[in-house]
Design a protein around this nucleic acid. Structure first.
Lengths: 195, 195
DNA sequence: TTCATTTATTAACCTATGTTAAGTTGATTC
DNA sequence: GAATCAACTTAACATAGGTTAATAAATGAA
């Protein structure tokens, strides 16, 4: 039975990788756990790792000038999370990552990331696809934000990510959707009464 | 005096490249011109090229279910444009690219893209950074869309891209900002009367 | 030059979401 | 198990931006 990490890689690149390739890659990563409400990364620090979530939940956010937090991405088991900008460029992180539940991750540092990409074309390909997918998903999300009202965005979100609705606090989902918690509460109320 | 393409590459990777490297890369690209209001790419087609704009203006957009167009990106001389998702994955394009002015481009097809990336690490690095920058800019834009009102978004847009305000029709700028042309007109009127 | 088409402006009215504020529920801590 | 705090709900009111529609200005074609 393949590990979640292996399944994630094979699904992303849409082909199987050999035991040898997988083991080599797996050995570049190390495991770590975090408690609830812990920062993996804070804005302004350098992001030295890409994280693969084995268990738990976390999210990334940007703080605006008023100090308000804006949720960027949620990650449960089987997701990757990082500040790719900071990781790749070496500049300071533009956002923060915080746990919502106790978290178990596999983390990959820059040095090992380079080694893994150079030594195995499948892994290089994997990370290329990972950022492409993230980029495309973001374009899609921006287009939706600009063309659909909050109710439709929430319905689509709930349908696409039912696990998030279960495990992510509503005020963060509201932030992700670009609305206030009160508005999300109203939307949820109206949509249940319609059924 | 370096060509615009060369200047663009060196600025992006933040280092000089040799004449040999540049010439090798330049020879992988070929030149083409388009009239005004011509599609370089239509949604549903495969995107086989990455375009570097030498002269002119174009934009990419997504059509929603109602048939409304949503501007994603504007490109003037010195910018790159493509549907990277389609280009990299080989799947059908999710958006369209159309000229706003007569356009002169350098285009790079997939085969040459692969060759250039494999034969020259600087070029491979260049395209990696290009997508990273695009990804980060998009995250930033989404965060702004979710946290600031249309007036602030327009002011920032106008300050950041004065050339776009000159050369891109207002109804497309409105679309890019996620508002209606009438609203942009109102915002522009109010902000000039304030001064 | 004239006509037709596209783009931009303006204004009256409408609606979704924000704001403020109070109350409720649930979770955490001592 | 009481006290405290964080998350969620609800409601009244305010407002940014959407809608509709009419007009004006700019652009392009004949």
């Amino acid at each position: 039975m393949p590990s979640t990490l292996r399944a994630n890689i094979e699904k992303t690149i849409q082909q199987a990788i050999s035991d040898k390739e997988y083991d080599a890659f797996r050995n570049f990563m190390f495991e770590k756990t975090y408690d609830k409400k812990i920062h993996l990364l804070e804005e302004g620090d350098k992001c030295n790792y890409i994280y693969f979530i084995q268990e738990g939940a976390c999210y990334s956010y940007i703080s605006d000038l008023k100090g308000d937090k804006h949720a960027i991405q949620f990650s449960l088991e089987g997701y990757w999370i990082s500040d790719l900008y900071s990781f790749y460029s070496g500049n300071n992180a533009i956002y923060s990552i915080e746990t919502l539940e106790p978290l178990s991750v596999l983390m990959l540092n820059k040095e090992n990331f380079e080694k893994a990409c150079c030594s195995c074309p499948m892994i290089d390909r994997f990370f290329r696809i990972l950022i492409q997918n993230a980029y495309v998903a973001l374009q899609y999300r921006l287009a939706k934000t600009n063309s659909e009202d909050a109710e439709h965005r929430y319905q689509e979100f709930a349908q696409k990510y039912p696990a998030f609705v279960q495990r992510i606090p509503q005020y963060l989902i509201a932030s992700y959707l670009g609305i206030k918690p009160q508005s999300l509460s109203r939307i949820r109320k109206e949509s249940t009464s319609k059924k």
